[in-house]
Amino acid sequence: MASSDYILQLVRQALDDFDDRPLDVSVRRAVRIANLVGDTRHAIRLSLELRPTGGDRHTNGEISRMLMADSSTWGSGTGPAEQAVAQYMNDRKMTSPNGEDAVQMHSLTELEFWDQELRDLKGRGEPVNYEVDLASRERNGNIVARTRHLTFALLCSWERRFGYTSINESIFGGYRVKVDTLLAEGVPDLLQQFNAVYRRLQEAAEASPERDAAEELSQAITTCRRILKVVVDHVLPPQEEPSASGHSLDDAHHRNRLYEFTKQAIESKSQNKLTDVMIAGLYDRFVAVDTMTNKAVHAAMALETANLCALNTYIICGEIISLHDLQADASDTY
C-alpha cells in the first residue's frame, strides 16, 4: 500500500502542474491517485472521461473492474461503479440535432480533436453550420469545464486529507521506532511474533468472502496473548508469594502480575488508573474476537476488532517495557 507521504507528493505534483498541462494529463493523474487511495467511484468516474468511444464492451467492463477497490460490488446496481456511470451519464446529457435525448460519449481527447477540426474547417473557409457549431462547442466546453472543476476539487480534497494523514503517520512512525527499539533491546523475539500477527491479519483481510477467516483471526489473537505474557514475564517474573492484596502472581496469573507491575511502577494514582483501564480494554478485546469468531459474526467486524487488538497490544507492550526501563533507571540512580 502506498504511503500517505507518497500519495501527497503525487497530489501536489498534479496540482502544481494543473494549469500548465493538458486536462487529460491531470485526469489520468487523478485516476491513479483515486485508485491508490481506494476511491473507486471517482477512479471510474474520471476514467470514463478518458475512455474513447466504441471498443469491446467486455474489455471496457474489465478495465473498470481493474480500478475497483472491491470488485465484488460490480453489477450490484448500487455500488460505486454504478454510481460513477450514473454521474457520468448525467453530466454528459445532451439533445441531438434531431431533438432526441442523447449522451455525449467522446473522450476528452476526442472532444479536443473535433473542436480543432471545426476550427480548421472554418479556417479553410469551408461551409459550417454555425448554429450547430456554436451549440456543439458550448456543450463540449461545459463538459470540459465540469471535468476540470471535478478533477481540481478532488486533488484539493486529497491534499488536505493526506496532509493531515502524513502528519499522523509521522507522529506514529516516531512512536513505532521507539517501541521497536524497546522491544528489540528488551525482548528481541517479540518483533518476529508481531510480524506473525500482522501476516495472519493480512491473510484474513485477503480471504475471499466465501472463505471463513476465523482461524487466521484466532491465531493472531492467540499470538497477541502470548506476546503480552512474554512482556509481563520480562517485567515481573512469576512469584510464589501473592501480592499485598492477596492476588496470585504465579505463571498462570500473568494478568494479576501486569496490574501489580503497573501499580509498583507508576506513582501517580490517576496515571495508574488510566493504564489499568487500557489493559482491561485490551483483555476485553481478546475475549470479543474469540466470541465473534466462535459465533461467525460478520467477518469485517471481527477483522476490525482483531486489528485493534494487535495495535493495542503493540502500544501497551511498548508502554510496559518503557515503564520497566524507567523503573530500572530510577533504581540505578538510588
Rank of each mutant, 00 (worst) to 15 (best):
Q327H: 01
Y6Q: 12
V289M: 10
Y164P: 01
L311F: 10
I321R: 01
A81W: 04
S245K: 11
N312P: 05
K273I: 02
H58F: 03
L155E: 04
E62M: 11
A299C: 06
C317F: 03
L308K: 15
L282Y: 04
T165W: 02
G55H: 02
A84F: 05
A135C: 06
I320G: 03
A145I: 07
K229I: 05
F152K: 14
H254A: 12
S3R: 07
A204N: 11
V31C: 09
Q202K: 10
W158K: 08
T293A: 12
A196P: 00
T78N: 13
A296Y: 15
F152C: 05
R92E: 02
Y130M: 03
M66V: 08
T275P: 00
A252M: 06
E49I: 09
D233L: 04
F152S: 11
R176Y: 13
G186L: 00
A265V: 10
T109R: 15
E215K: 06
L183Y: 03
L308V: 11
D332H: 11
L308Y: 03
D17T: 03
L118P: 04
N142T: 14
K178M: 12
G186E: 07
V25K: 08
I315A: 13
E169M: 02
G38I: 08
V187A: 03
L249V: 01
E216N: 11
Y314M: 00
I321G: 02
S208I: 11
L326S: 14
E210A: 13
H149G: 05
E216D: 13
L155G: 01
E185L: 07
F113G: 03
L258A: 05
L182S: 10
H149N: 08
Q83K: 14
V25T: 12
S47Q: 15
Y198W: 09
S3W: 06
L8D: 01
R65I: 00
V128W: 06
C156T: 08
E206R: 13
S76E: 14
L23D: 03
F286W: 11
S322N: 11
L10D: 01
V132E: 10
D24V: 11
R45V: 05
E131P: 00
A300F: 04
Y6R: 14
I7D: 02
I316T: 14
L201D: 02
S170D: 07
A328N: 11
L236H: 08
L201C: 01
Q13I: 09
L258Y: 00
N142D: 15
Y334Q: 13
A14G: 02
D180E: 05
R28D: 12
R211V: 13
E82T: 13
R45S: 12
P209F: 09
A244Y: 06
F152Y: 14
G246A: 04
R148H: 05
D251Y: 07
A300K: 06
E159R: 14
S166T: 02
Q264I: 09
T313R: 06
V132M: 07
L201T: 01
H58T: 06
I167R: 06
V187K: 00
A34I: 00
A265Q: 10
P242Q: 10
G61R: 12
E159H: 08
D325E: 15
L46M: 15
R51F: 03
V179K: 00
T59N: 04
Q9H: 13
T293Q: 07
V187Q: 00
R255S: 13
N90W: 12
A184R: 05
